[in-house]
Design a protein around this nucleic acid. Sequence first.
DNA 1: TCATGTAGGACCAGTTTAGTCGTATATCGG
DNA 2: CCGATATACGACTAAACTGGTCCTACATGA
Lengths: 161, 161
Amino acid sequence: MLKLTKKADYGLIALKHLAVKGASASAKEIADTYQIPLPLLSKVLQKLAKNGFLLSEHGTHGGYRLARGAWSITALEVIRSIDGPVFLTSCFTGHGGCNHLDTCNVREPLRKVHDGIQKLLASISIGDMAQDGAPEAVECSGEVSAPVYAASPALPVLPSL
Amino acid sequence: MLKLTKKADYGLIALKHLAVKGASASAKEIADTYQIPLPLLSKVLQKLAKNGFLLSEHGTHGGYRLARGAWSITALEVIRSIDGPVFLTSCFTGHGGCNHLDTCNVREPLRKVHDGIQKLLASISIGDMAQDGAPEAVECSGEVSAPVYAASPALPVLPSL
DNA sequence: TCATGTAGGACCAGTTTAGTCGTATATCGG
DNA sequence: CCGATATACGACTAAACTGGTCCTACATGA
């Protein structure tokens, strides 16, 4: 089905909210604003905090705020942080999930698509989303073997795959 | 998790197999070659046949063969035919799955990613995959004919998006 | 007629998703 | 200190999806 989970969606929503606001916000505030179940959003935020995207503050006027610059957080990182590794097929899990490596005939072509999707996700940052305008970086040429993606100003370092 | 289902995977494998072989093949042949459970592959092939990608032939020497030129079948079509519509988020299902359209702040940015992925998938055809790194160790039944595609010209079908 | 093939519905176990609940803990305003 | 407000986190559940099996019906060629 190739779709994002709601958790990842919620994570992106929350991060963009914080980026736009430019200050800290409580989970409740975000949950109320976007009609997200509070306990569910809390878990997402906790995971984002644990992975270094957010700083959390307890107490009466606590909440979350961005731990890094919005431009340095990519959608790929966020999704991977919440949903785990992003794979186009189970072949790419690395731990030999594919039992017929010698016979499979679609792995290499699919890897190209896979890489393209990753680049695409890595080319959009929370900062891009926060200014709501088109990053217009998302330009996809038809040629997969030679994809030309105009990357965001500063393409951040990807965590090791 | 953003990953392809095995069914879609199997569909692509089968289509590429048929494109490379250039002749018809039975579900059993394909299933044996790639270690795919036969009944599962059968369902995928039936769906592909019903959607106009394959022609089926009953009987002793029956099987499936491509109904269209390999270069005119895109990965996007195949995946969509097997797994249903491809959506990045549930917001894009069209039938108003998203209940807070006015407040959601990530829809437009995500739509760009969504479109990019669709273009990427639409830019790869079975023909592309068939001529990719072809291991050519395909030594199935009898003849090893030079792969001849129905549609000769390299006509990269560009997405209309 | 029989082996071999497709067509397709019913069923099932395991996993994932989305979400709830309960409880512990930290911080601030009184 | 007290209590309101916040995060932290594990256990639990219902529903959906995935991957797969089983069974029957039907078509075709030798």
